[in-house]
Simulated assay, not measured.
Amino acid sequence: MNNKRITVFRKEHFNAAHRLNNPAWSVERNKAVFGLCNNDNFHGHNYELIVQVSGEIDPETGYLIDLKILSDLIKEEVLNRFDHKNLNLDTQEFKHLNPTAENIAVVIYDLIRAKLDERYTLKIRLYETERNFVEYPTEW
């Protein structure tokens, strides 16, 4: 079974509030670009997160990665940090970064990538709604 590449997926869920806003822009421009997502009092989403890890199967364990280890990593780096938080007000990551789905996915990728063994490739899929989702990184 050596050199067999495989991908595993871990699905998680978190709830968070945010406001899309560019402080360098006027109130009018923010409202025009971000619409309801620019609500002064914020709004929330029930985010669905899919963490995709790829690599070679370990011949000793038969695992790519122990899914309990991956689950714990996601809980520590993402859920504990973002679940039931106001991303704009309660997190360091979005103090000066607009918490769009795109930016949230990149931040989550960076947090997990920093703790994940480099032999694995990583991809993040983040659903903001059932119909709207982003993936990072993307192959061109």
Rank of each mutant, 00 (worst) to 15 (best):
93 E>N: 09
54 S>C: 04
138 T>E: 15
73 L>S: 02
123 K>H: 06
53 V>T: 14
33 V>C: 03
140 W>P: 14
64 L>R: 05
50 I>T: 09
92 Q>S: 09
120 Y>R: 10
95 K>W: 04
15 N>V: 04
131 R>V: 02
24 A>V: 11
48 E>F: 10
103 N>A: 09
24 A>N: 11
32 A>M: 00
63 Y>M: 15
29 R>Y: 13
74 I>R: 11
121 T>V: 04
68 K>E: 13
47 Y>Q: 01
92 Q>E: 14
60 E>R: 12
69 I>A: 10
81 R>C: 04
88 N>Q: 12
129 T>A: 05
54 S>N: 06
98 N>W: 03
101 A>D: 00
59 P>L: 08
27 V>Y: 13
17 A>Q: 08
37 C>P: 01
106 V>H: 03
130 E>W: 10
44 G>L: 02
51 V>L: 06
35 G>R: 04
119 R>I: 14
21 N>K: 04
56 E>L: 13
97 L>H: 10
103 N>G: 04
113 R>Q: 14
110 D>P: 02
50 I>V: 15
43 H>E: 01
113 R>W: 06
35 G>P: 00
125 R>K: 13
77 E>A: 12
115 K>C: 06
102 E>L: 12
35 G>H: 08
13 H>L: 08
98 N>Q: 11
132 N>A: 06
50 I>A: 03
133 F>Y: 15
50 I>W: 06
93 E>V: 02
73 L>G: 09
63 Y>P: 00
115 K>V: 13
132 N>P: 00
120 Y>I: 11
31 K>L: 15
70 L>N: 06
15 N>A: 13
16 A>I: 01
40 D>H: 05
40 D>Y: 01
100 T>R: 07
137 P>M: 07
105 A>G: 01
90 D>C: 08
2 N>M: 07
29 R>S: 12
105 A>P: 01
2 N>R: 08
77 E>P: 00
104 I>E: 01
99 P>Y: 09
64 L>C: 04
58 D>F: 06
20 L>K: 02
139 E>T: 15
3 N>W: 00
42 F>E: 05
5 R>L: 15
112 I>F: 09
105 A>Q: 01
10 R>G: 01
67 L>R: 10
48 E>Q: 11
85 K>E: 01
99 P>H: 13
139 E>K: 15
111 L>K: 14
134 V>Y: 02
108 I>D: 03
36 L>E: 14
20 L>I: 13
98 N>I: 11
19 R>A: 05
54 S>M: 05
